[in-house]
Design a protein around this nucleic acid. Structure first.
Ligand SMILES: [Mn+2]
Ligand SMILES: [Mn+2]
Ligand SMILES: [Zn+2]
Ligand SMILES: [Zn+2]
Lengths: 149, 149
DNA sequence: GTCGTGAATGCAACTGAGTCGCAACTGATG
DNA sequence: CATCAGTTGCGACTCAGTTGCATTCACGAC
């Protein structure tokens, strides 16, 4: 489980003089092994199952660090429910999030259009993208079939 | 100033049995005439210059209404600063927001790729998009030119 | 190993965005 | 006008996220 990720993490952080603490390792491990997208509260709860002393403030401080360092992406999944943000490990391939307000499901979608967009932004605007967030709201397949069916 | 918008607003709302109150008209007018993107606090402040009695709760309730009704889009502009959300009147052409953390500037970018994306999502996933939010973080032209100089 | 030091953590108090229940008010309809 | 459901202002509340500070700890130097 995520040994490589842990390796790259140590690299990525220690190079910048950022310490790899027990808590940071734990939080990234939780994010790696999480089935879906976690918000800060859920991340804290999950981490506390391993280390009951870890604090809310540490979670927020670590998330900030990981966001800035490009290791984690922050999403709001269109705030389909609540105002919290959600977090996921940054992967190699960018992806789009599809949210269906009707059933509350979030699904993921990969497409070359994400890359195309960052290229077009660079070409036409001179803007060098470092991160892209695409979130689509709409009616998912299951919901639209259930409605007409 | 936004007479047509007001007309279409009355249509759009009264059809659904939603009353066009003094406060709602005012809030939409402020959004229409705002130079950039406003968060809820700024929207309240601006509205109070015309109607000092308007309340925070009304702003939030109205924003919720307008979001649900598709008249206003909620953005978080990658939370470059703060956790608030920002609001803008929905226009005909979808557009992308480009945010530069270095100088804090938000710019807008129009491209057919937005439409292409919603089509691809429909074709490959059976997902009917009702709204798309694309936010790109990166280094703007001015900042990258200033850096290399 | 152990030591020293600056960085990170836990804690508790705080901030402020957003929500809610309720009494007073008002826009639409006839 | 008169009616009345929908809407507003208000004040109290919730709770995500932040901050200051004393304590602890990661990690490089020895
Ligand atoms: Mn995802
Ligand atoms: Mn957000
Ligand atoms: Zn659905
Ligand atoms: Zn810039």
């Amino acid at each position: 489980m995520s040994v490589t990720a842990r390796g790259s993490l140590a690299e990525a952080l220690s190079l910048r003089g950022i310490r790899l603490t027990r808590q940071r390792r734990l939080l990234l491990e939780v994010l790696d092994n999480a089935p879906g997208h976690l918000n800060a509260r859920e991340l804290l709860q999950a981490a506390r199952r391993t280390d009951p002393t870890i604090d809310r403030a540490t979670v927020y401080r670590t998330l900030h660090l990981l966001k800035t360092g490009g290791l984690v992406d922050e999403l709001d999944l269109l705030h389909l429910e609540g105002e919290e943000h959600y977090y996921e490990r940054r992967r190699t391939g960018d992806h789009v999030h599809l949210g269906c307000p009707q059933c509350g499901t979030i699904s993921e979608f990969e497409t070359d259009l994400v890359l195309e967009l960052s290229q077009e932004v660079a070409r036409r605007e001179g803007f060098t993208a470092t991160g892209i967030r695409i979130e689509v709201r709409g009616i998912c397949k299951a919901c639209s079939e259930a409605q007409v069916g």
